[in-house]
Design a protein around this nucleic acid. Sequence first.
DNA 1: TTGTCCCGACCGAACATTCGGTTAATCTAT
DNA 2: ATAGATTAACCGAATGTTCGGTCGGGACAA
Lengths: 195, 195
Amino acid sequence: MTMSKRDTYTPETLLAVAVEVFNERGYDGTSMEHLSRAAGISKSSIYHHVRGKEELLHRAVGRALEGLFGILDEQGARDGRAVERLEYVTRRTAEVLMDELPYVTLLLRVRGNTATERWAMERRREFDQRVAALLKDAVAEGDLRADVDVRLATRLLFGMINSLVEWYRPEGRGSTEAEQVVDAVARLAFDGLRT
Amino acid sequence: MTMSKRDTYTPETLLAVAVEVFNERGYDGTSMEHLSRAAGISKSSIYHHVRGKEELLHRAVGRALEGLFGILDEQGARDGRAVERLEYVTRRTAEVLMDELPYVTLLLRVRGNTATERWAMERRREFDQRVAALLKDAVAEGDLRADVDVRLATRLLFGMINSLVEWYRPEGRGSTEAEQVVDAVARLAFDGLRT
DNA sequence: TTGTCCCGACCGAACATTCGGTTAATCTAT
DNA sequence: ATAGATTAACCGAATGTTCGGTCGGGACAA
């Protein structure tokens, strides 16, 4: 927690800038030159703070995965009927997505070209499987429709939630927008569009 | 329709190969070297068939957009109550997504780095707005719930459908898998997960 | 004066694209 | 039927550019 007088970058503050650029141009479409311009420091200075481009990616997706897996440890995801736990995880996932928007966005877009990307994809699959198990239990307890394959339903549910990163942009301070989005997600997911 | 005896590439057959690689590595992550290896011809030979890398992208997303906009001209998207037209478009969009999987996948992933990508994004927005209008009409006709914002609902609906490209892989010939996916999409979208 | 932070200059590798030229199938005129 | 002309398809080598990353040194706070 030592803070210098000099207004300077840390790996964390640099990360925030980098993630923005990664999301705008794509990871592969972003050069260190782009990053240096966005950060306002020279290309070589970036290497003072991080080992390289891939470390920035690793830190970013790591933070996103931390947020997602954290949900599963919360009480709401552990107690109660499966369908209630599923709704809790659904809502919280949407919340975390919006809270950590740029980091999760990046996570959801990795393609598997580097070791870091493959690691991220694997951990993400892990998370998906945990939720799929929840959905399966809810079906077994009779609270969810059994006429749709569990695996398929999980994927579509996540497809809907994850699509938030494609368009959600936080509004000015104190907005209730995020709540409305979470409600809409839960309503559509569990009760559908129909009247 | 002239066909040469010689087993050789045309811009179209080359496109099929290129789109596969683009989807696997990402457009920016794909070099002409990668393409040439996948196609089994030399890097320079590719330039005999197409102007360059970006033309391949343009042809690919163009084909995807053609398929999507084609839906809106079909009878099912023009006649009947708005909610029925919406369900028709929903189902057909899922079908086109699976039929033209690699092309639509590429379309849904463009980031806007080149002129071609920006053109694709704009046309895609156009399509989304056409469907949003449909959803709005269905709400006005009283067939869809009015307690969720139209714009938001459209985005979530598309989020669910479009997520198909993240995991759907066609099975062997004569499979009924695609139908099942379409049914699941329609059921979840309109009636939700709940029993 | 020491260590942190930063810079411009630079590097080898990889990039998209171009070029000069070869091969082989098809067309033309006899 | 076939020699010669034409052309589509292809290639290896080279173009200039951009890439991620390195290096030696300067500025500044402690």
